[in-house]
Amino acid sequence: MIIDCHIHCGLGNSELLTESGITYKNTVETMIQLVKIYKQKGIQALRDGGDVSGVGIILRAISKDSGLIYRTPIRAFYKKGLYGDFLGEHLENTKDGIRKMDALMKETPDFIKIILTGIMSFNEYGVSGAIGLSQGECTAIIDHAHQSGLSVMVHANSPKGIMMALTSGADTIEHGYGIDDDCLHAMRESNVVWVPTLAPFANIAKCSDENPMKKYRKVSERYFRQHQQQVKKANAMGVNIALGSDSGATLVAHGQGTLDELGYLLDCGLTEEKLESIGKRVIDF
């Protein structure tokens, strides 16, 4: 059973976009096609990372009769003024975050998604976007989700951001670029699941000369190789690792991106059996 624990169904679908925004008709047709694509690739379950449109609600409804298991946070939460505007709603402070989470819960998300840090810089290797929430804000928001019976996936890069997510009670760490040994030990001790998303940088690193992303191949190769070594180390330590492709991101195609990620993780020494086991745990959170 192939389970992808991190996709974005609302990204990577240019046919969704019109001059007036996203149309319901086009969205339904596109989500039906996505289900077909994933099923044709032999992928049985998906966990979304959300987007500002909240299109995951439509895919969730379609998937119920398709045999494809699908979970969505609908929209993610990020700190106002920082990275994440295309993925969901901004938060100004703890009170605002709890209020907006309560409003989102009326749409019955399967879990909560928090964007704690930015992405890794393509221009300066190793530099991550700013941490958006304070330790107190992050802890309070995660606690509120847990009290409401929902798990929390946290987008976090850099040692400081990852450690804050871990100590705040995150259930899964998404991406985790720049992760260090202290974070790996904390992750193992807390039994948190890491979803390392190797495919985005790996696929950019091997793109063709005709691709506009070719100017980022060298830095992407560095990110991929460093991340690959940390995944190998984490696996040897007994850290829980799940497959998550970040499909919908640049050069990570829906369906094929999942198989790309599977290949990268197998190269790191993980097994399909272990990935299935951890994936089921994540999907069932």
Rank of each mutant, 00 (worst) to 15 (best):
E221D: 12
G169I: 01
D65T: 12
E124W: 01
S134Y: 09
I162W: 10
D85C: 14
I142K: 09
V55P: 06
V192R: 00
V154H: 02
S20Y: 08
G50E: 07
G257R: 05
A45W: 00
S20T: 08
V52T: 13
H185C: 09
V152Y: 07
S14F: 06
T197K: 03
P73D: 02
K36M: 04
S66G: 09
K113D: 14
E89L: 12
C268P: 04
I37F: 00
G81H: 02
G169R: 06
G257T: 00
D260C: 07
I283D: 01
R60Y: 11
V52D: 11
Q229G: 05
G81Y: 03
G178L: 09
I3N: 00
N13F: 01
S121E: 14
Q40L: 00
G244L: 01
M153K: 15
L265T: 03
G238A: 04
E92A: 03
L150C: 07
Y216T: 02
N203Q: 11
Y78G: 04
N13R: 13
Q228K: 13
N191S: 13
E272R: 07
K106V: 08
C5S: 02
I98Q: 11
I179D: 08
S20E: 10
L59R: 09
S208R: 04
S148R: 15
E189V: 02
G257Q: 05
H185I: 13
A249V: 14
K100P: 14
Y223F: 05
K280N: 04
G149D: 12
Q256S: 10
T108P: 09
I142G: 04
Y216C: 12
L11W: 02
E189Q: 13
L262W: 06
Y78A: 12
D96T: 11
I37V: 07
V28K: 10
T250M: 10
G257P: 05
L270T: 00
M1F: 05
H155N: 12
Q33N: 14
A170P: 12
G81C: 06
I283R: 09
G176A: 03
G161A: 06
A199F: 06
Q229S: 10
L68I: 05
E107P: 14
I114L: 15
I22F: 11
N26H: 13
A156W: 11
M237E: 12
L270W: 00
E19D: 07
S148P: 05
G10L: 02
D85K: 14
Y83N: 13
S148E: 14
N203K: 06
L251C: 07
E261P: 08
T250W: 01
T197W: 02
K79G: 07
K206V: 14
Y83M: 03
Q135F: 14
A76L: 03
A45F: 02
I74R: 05
A140E: 15
T250F: 06
F86P: 15
D4L: 00
